[in-house]
Design a protein around this nucleic acid. Structure first.
Lengths: 215, 215
DNA sequence: TAGATTGTTAATCGATTAACAATC
DNA sequence: TAGATTGTTAATCGATTAACAATC
């Protein structure tokens, strides 16, 4: 890590591992702050994330001396520092595809808003749903995706559709210039190589958790 | 990896990384099979998982010679081998806490059933919901959790409740002997050290995806 | 045979951890 | 001061990758 004397980071790109861990610290800090805590130790973060405390201190100390020995880290200031490192201080607009039960659950959860992420558009192919609002956002038809995505500067799409509709929805997102797709269906998606697909599958995680439970 | 000459694995415990990757291969193979494919190459798995093809071959070859040079892997037989390694051939019963939109979405998804995981009980504290069925399973009150969990041999609980109800529900699961908790709320959970908590947060993954998009 | 893809080697890099002086 | 916790070092281990012979 190359740093100037003023703390202005001449940023090299973070490794995937570091960025993933910093994101998780961000989540713990956000929740701890909501619980009214003002300080937190690397050990407490470790307990919540299952990431080793030494690793946490090491990750953070690569960017500056954010903690106080004998005391821990100030939650507010550490939140600010990590947001700076991850460049997540702006507002980000995302599109949700699928206004079924999962889509509604996602739209009504505070989980995105809490991190400055706004669901700026919701799409569904069911004509009966068009115009209805979920999470305060009216449901549009998939035919409008292209126009709306460009107009609202959307680069992230969340797929909450059945497996058999997933590839079609992904194609529509890609056509509209979306570069990051979160896939909550089981389907495997074919996309151009400049599009990042994140597939979330609770069953996969569960099989893996069971392995360690059973052995 | 210590192996006998007959392929009978004198199993050492898998590392966390290997078990996580094998679980993901399982998911890709399951989907590829549904799409009617019979064979798959390490490169194809790599395209769907973003895991390096060499790493995939290396992970698999640690357990046997499952592939055919010039051809690839037979999907059915590789599925069987990985299931053997991960010991996920049995049926597993899990409990779902929370019968709201997210709970319903989870219960009605084939994602668990596909991997031999059965939602054997659903709990909710809303008296109006008791007895109603979701995913074919009647909703019980949280007061019955202890009895039902023991009776149905449930060691995994999935929390689909609001953040402010999550700790209480987690306590109830722990009291009922559950050792693996999937937390779909934002709440940080305090649990005994022999209980594995997996917290899933799409916003965290998104922040991290955005970092790599923006840099 | 020719082309494709595995299984494996060798080299590198990042993650992980224990330990402990520094210091709040 | 005494206790706690950071920041950092040093050592180890697993992940990652390119390359390629083996072989289907």
């Amino acid at each position: 890590m190359v740093r100037g004397s003023e703390g202005a980071t001449l940023a090299e790109r973070l490794t995937v591992g570091v960025a993933a861990r910093l994101s998780r610290y961000l989540q713990v800090l956000t929740q701890a702050k909501k619980m009214g805590k003002e300080r937190i130790s690397s050990q407490e973060i470790a307990d919540y994330t299952n990431i080793n405390a030494t690793q946490i201190r090491r990750d953070l100390s690569g960017f500056g001396k954010f903690g106080k020995r004998g005391v821990g880290y100030n939650i507010d200031s550490l939140l600010g520092e990590i947001r700076k490192i991850l460049r997540t201080q702006g507002q980000h607009n995302i599109a949700l595809i699928g206004a079924g039960r999962l889509g509604e659950a996602i739209a009504s959860s505070p989980i995105f808003a809490e991190h400055g992420i706004t669901i700026a558009a919701v799409f569904d192919n069911d004509p009966a749903k068009l115009g209805r609002k979920i999470g305060g956002v009216p449901i549009s038809s998939l035919g409008e995706l292209d126009e709306i995505a460009r107009e609202r500067n959307i680069i992230v799409g969340v797929l909450a559709v059945p497996a058999d509709a997933a590839q079609g929805a992904a194609d529509a997102l890609v056509a509209a210039g979306v570069k990051i797709v979160f896939n909550y269906s089981q389907a495997l998606l074919d996309t151009p190589s400049d599009v990042q697909v994140h597939t979330s599958n609770p069953a996969v995680e569960l099989l893996y958790a069971l392995y360690f439970h059973l052995t």
